[in-house]
Structures are given as C-alpha cells and as structure tokens.
Simulated scan of single mutants.
Amino acid sequence: MPVSSAEYGETGETGYPIEQELEAVVTDTSSAELNRLRTLFAEAGLVLLDFTNGERRVVGSDEFPVQVNTELSGTPATLSLTFKRDSPEPAKVYSSF
C-alpha cells in the first residue's frame, strides 16, 4: 500500500525483547481504501516493510503477530498506521516476498 511517509525503528539485542515501532501515514482516505485498510488491519498478522534502499523486512510471525492500529484525523484526512511492541525476535530480511 502506498504511504506518504513512514518511520520504522527497532532497538534491542538478540536474546532480549526487541522494541519495534512503526508510524506511517496514508493520504488516500477514500471510503473504498479506508474499508480495505480497516479490514486488512482488523486482525493481527505480518507486516512487510519496503525500505527506500530496496531492502525488505518482515515484522511478526505466526507465533508473534503484529497488531496495527489505525486512526483517521486531520483536514484533509489522513490515516495513521501505528504499532509499538516488544518482540522476542527482530524483523527478518526476506527476499522471497
């Protein structure tokens, strides 16, 4: 999904909880897009991050899924996608996605 801006951060060491945080903004707030995104994020799952340097990482797993929060605000309206969590595992580099 296209986002207008996003910041992802991860701190911690392997073997200890890894703090993971995402803040992303979506500017397409048409009713069809809002319904699609709210349906998509209604359940916890995996998050695939495409970085500007071409790298791709996956946050979460079937054992440790991610719950993304959504919040509509502002004029013109924007949709914020956020999560902040402690995970036993860091984001993984996957080239097959």
Rank of each mutant, 00 (worst) to 15 (best):
S96V: 14
D50F: 13
G74R: 12
T52S: 15
K92G: 04
R38V: 00
R36M: 11
R57W: 06
T27H: 05
E55V: 12
A42V: 02
E13W: 11
P76V: 04
Y8R: 04
K84T: 09
P90W: 01
R56M: 10
E63D: 14
T39C: 07
S30T: 06
A24P: 05
G45L: 06
E55M: 10
G54L: 06
S30F: 04
F97W: 11
E13M: 13
E55T: 15
A91P: 06
G15M: 08
T82L: 08
A44L: 04
T29K: 01
K92T: 12
V47M: 03
T11M: 08
S96G: 11
T11L: 07
T82H: 10
F41M: 06
V59T: 06
Y8M: 03
T78L: 10
F64N: 11
S87P: 03
Q20D: 04
S80G: 08
D86F: 12
M1L: 09
V58W: 08
T75S: 12
T11S: 12
V59R: 02
D86S: 13
E63H: 11
I18E: 03
E55G: 06
E21G: 10
Y94H: 14
T52E: 15
L22F: 03
R38D: 14
S5T: 14
E89M: 13
Y94Q: 14
V93H: 11
G9K: 08
S61A: 02
P88G: 01
R36H: 13
V66N: 03
S31E: 12
V47E: 00
E71A: 14
A32C: 01
R56D: 04
S4K: 11
E19K: 10
V59N: 01
E89R: 14
I18G: 01
N35Y: 08
L49W: 06
S5F: 08
V59F: 01
A91C: 05
A24E: 07
S95F: 09
L49Y: 04
I18L: 03
Y8H: 03
N53F: 03
E10H: 04
N69C: 01
D86G: 11
V58C: 04
P76H: 05
S31F: 08
T78V: 15
G60M: 01
E7K: 10
S30A: 02
A44M: 09
T52R: 15
E21I: 13
K92R: 13
E63T: 15
E7P: 00
N35S: 15
V59G: 01
L46Q: 09
S87Q: 07
I18T: 02
Y94D: 12
Y16D: 13
L37H: 00
E23D: 12
L46N: 00
A24D: 02
S87W: 01
G15K: 07
E13H: 11
D28E: 06
A42L: 08
L46S: 08
T14H: 07
A6M: 07
S31N: 13
G74P: 10
Q67G: 10
S80D: 09
R56L: 05
P90V: 03
P90A: 05
K92M: 06
D62H: 13
R38S: 12
E43W: 10
F97H: 07
E23S: 15
D62G: 15
T78C: 05
L46E: 09
L48Y: 06
L40N: 08
D86W: 06
F64H: 13
T70E: 06
L34R: 03
Q20E: 05
S80C: 00
M1I: 09
V68Y: 01
G9W: 10
S80A: 14
Q20S: 06
G45N: 07
T75W: 11
T11K: 08
D50S: 14
